[in-house]
Amino acid sequence: MAGSATGAGEASRQGWHDCREAWARTIEGLAEADPNIVVVVNDSVGSSKLGGFQKKFPDRVINVGIAEQTLVGVGAGLANGGKIPFVSGASCFLTARALEQVKADVAYAKANVKLVGQSSGIAYGELGPTHHSIEDFAWLRPLDNLTVITPADPWETAEAVKWAAGYEGPVYLRLSRMPVPNLDIPNRVFRPGHAELVREGTDVAILACGTLVHLAVQAANLLAKEDISARVVNFSSLAPFDRDAVRAAASLGAIVTAEEANIRGGLGGAVAEFTAENMPVPVQRVGFPGFLPTGSIEDLFEAFGLTVTGIAAAARKSLARRAR
């Protein structure tokens, strides 16, 4: 089915947004109000949508060139000098090339650095596994002190950026460039470390993050037609990890996780670890198995089941395992 990978045909995609626009708008607004806010980039002004920021605040864009270790180290230094640095670059390079700087200079040192991973997951599609960032969850999740947030839509992106600016400590914001709709949740409040209930359900819980959340909602709608009541939870905070939300999910007896990431070590890994030790229940993980073959974003989502039908199938499988 054409367009099923991202959950909608072209016609219904009006009102969908690239979350980088919300990021750029929000960081510009914050910078207007606080002269200490600066951005640090690795030749990534364009890919970070920071052209407007650069026009308004040319001195506050620190471009270190194509040098990721220095990118992150400079962020830690700027924080030492009283600035609030948002270090923005493609997730694949920011988190992999500079991982030791993220670990030592930022997380271990508790430096007030905001890492903004752009074009995360498989946003670079056909450019391949060197440019995919699907391992970042696995290598950032064990780092103490580092808050890891994967916003699900433009609203949450803006709220997470605002929150990060006011929070004293290290943060990783994992942004996508894949257009997504705003989730339809009344009276939302962004609370880092807390999973967000998107849709109540009583048979199976789908814990999703980022670009997979709106697909999980559609999967729940599909399952409802089969009289399966699926809860959908937006698990945007991978760290701190909302154990209560996983406990509540496990109490239903069947769990699905869904993420635009390698399932080894990411959200699915975290949920599996927790449930195995505390409340063993079936967990079906939707995500990528490893290095991916050549393909567009849509091709790869479809091929590996990061789809409405793929998530629904995982839910049925989890329920079937519970029944055994």
Binding site: D59, Q69, G73, V74, A76, G77, G81, K83, Q101, A104
Partner: peptide
Amino acid sequence: NYLPGIETNTGPLGHGLPVALGIAIAGKLS
């Protein structure tokens, strides 16, 4: 975080100069 007077955590080599660069840039901006 253990002792006063330490500006950044070091140990793995090659980390100090990039951090010092950021501190120097912050001083110039301020």
